[in-house]
Simulated scan of single mutants.
Amino acid sequence: MRTDIFARLDREPEPPKIEAPRMSRHRAALFGGTLAFYLAIVFAVLVTSWLVALDWKVMLFRPYQQWPELHAFLDYYVVLGQRGPTAVMVACWLGWRSWRQHTLRPLLVLGTALLLLNVTVGAVKLGLGRLGPHYATQIGSAEMFAGGDIFPSGHTANAVVTWGILAYLATTPRARRYLSAVSATVSLGVGLTTVYIGTHWLSDVLLGWAAGLLILLALPWFEPLIARTESWIFDLREQWREHRRAGRAAPAPAAGGTPEPVLLPQSIATEGAAVTPVTAEGAAVTPGTGAPAAGHLAAGVRGRAHHVPTVCPERPGAAPTGARRPPSHPDHGPCCSTTGPAARPMTGG
């Protein structure tokens, strides 16, 4: 009994086509509300409102000093929000899903989400230029436009997008609920961990949650582009396969480049004629070598080695083709003549 998992999976039927989510009214309303929350946080930080004062209170509280026993564990836990390790782990799982479902959609959705994350979050980070808590210069200041790159929190936004993709690509409502709860828990923990170790302000984490959720909610708008990209990749694969099959079916050229001899059809030969193979260009070919004979030897003219005797079909008892016969003399008559040469007189008779 075979236990090879790959052989068993190859025998499984192809799963039905999975419908991509659409931008429903409910999703559009969530997107609009999240966008308003995002803009409100940016405005509150820019005007140095109560949210900035809260940031300073949490930072001066120094949670990593209040609960130092958690520091060792949270240093590893925050890796769940780093882009490199999480992207590799999720890409491996979605690659397995793509192979099982015979589709590239899971990997293309992940690539699209990460591209949107890098563009949107990176642009806001560099545009606002906020400094982190460890590099703050003035108490109570928002530390904006100072050359920093921590607003919004990249760890938090990456955790929301990377782990939220699993829920977005779930194929059943039950799996979607469970994966949504898991991704929310992981992203919430990653955001609070960055506040605990002092690498981000609290407002950075709030904006990171909003930024990641906006990307997940906007993915249905990119589904048509993802479908066209998948179709284009499969078309390229088929063209490549056809090209390979055509290359294998092409005949191989003759070795050495020697022209193949062309044998002319044998007709009833005249006296002393011989059939000699010739090439397509009309050059005589030396038997057994495949090379053109020097000087284009004519049939039955030069040498007995190139003379092929002709057998007359009318003469009874004619020797079979290829039998040894004495060469005919040019003075003799045709081989098919009924009157042979004159009898030689016997001496002494």
Rank of each mutant, 00 (worst) to 15 (best):
Ala7Tyr: 02
Ala7Gln: 15
Arg8Glu: 01
Arg11Asn: 10
Glu12Arg: 15
Pro13Asn: 03
Met23His: 05
Phe37Asp: 01
Tyr38Met: 12
Leu46Tyr: 14
Val52Lys: 06
Asp55Ser: 10
Trp56Gly: 08
Val58Ala: 13
Leu74Lys: 02
Val79Asp: 12
Leu80Gln: 01
Arg83Leu: 12
Gly84Lys: 04
Gly84His: 03
Ala87Ser: 13
Val90Lys: 00
Leu94Pro: 00
Leu107Arg: 01
Ala113Val: 01
Gly122Tyr: 08
Ala123Met: 13
Lys125Ser: 05
Gly127Lys: 05
Gly129Leu: 03
Arg130Trp: 11
Leu131Lys: 09
Gly132Tyr: 01
Phe145Ala: 07
Ala146Tyr: 06
Phe151Gln: 04
Gly154Met: 03
Gly154Tyr: 05
Ala159Met: 07
Thr162Asn: 11
Leu166Ala: 00
Thr172Ile: 00
Leu179Cys: 00
Gly189Arg: 00
Gly191Thr: 04
Leu192Phe: 15
Leu192Arg: 08
Ile197Tyr: 12
Gly198Ser: 13
His200Leu: 10
Asp204Met: 08
Ile215Gly: 05
Leu216Ala: 03
Pro220Gln: 09
Phe222Cys: 14
Ala227Thr: 11
Thr229Gln: 08
Trp232Tyr: 06
Arg244Cys: 06
Arg245Trp: 08
Ala246Phe: 04
Leu263Glu: 15
Ala269Ser: 04
Ala283His: 09
Ala283Val: 01
Gly288Arg: 03
Thr289His: 02
Ala291Asn: 06
Ala293Cys: 02
Ala293His: 03
Ala294Met: 09
Gly300Gln: 03
Gly303Arg: 09
Gly303Gln: 09
Arg304Asp: 12
Ala305Arg: 10
His307Cys: 10
His307Gly: 03
His307Glu: 13
Val308Lys: 05
Ala319Val: 06
Pro320Cys: 01
Gly322Val: 02
Arg325Asn: 04
Pro330Leu: 10
Cys336Arg: 10
Ser337Gly: 12
Gly340Phe: 03
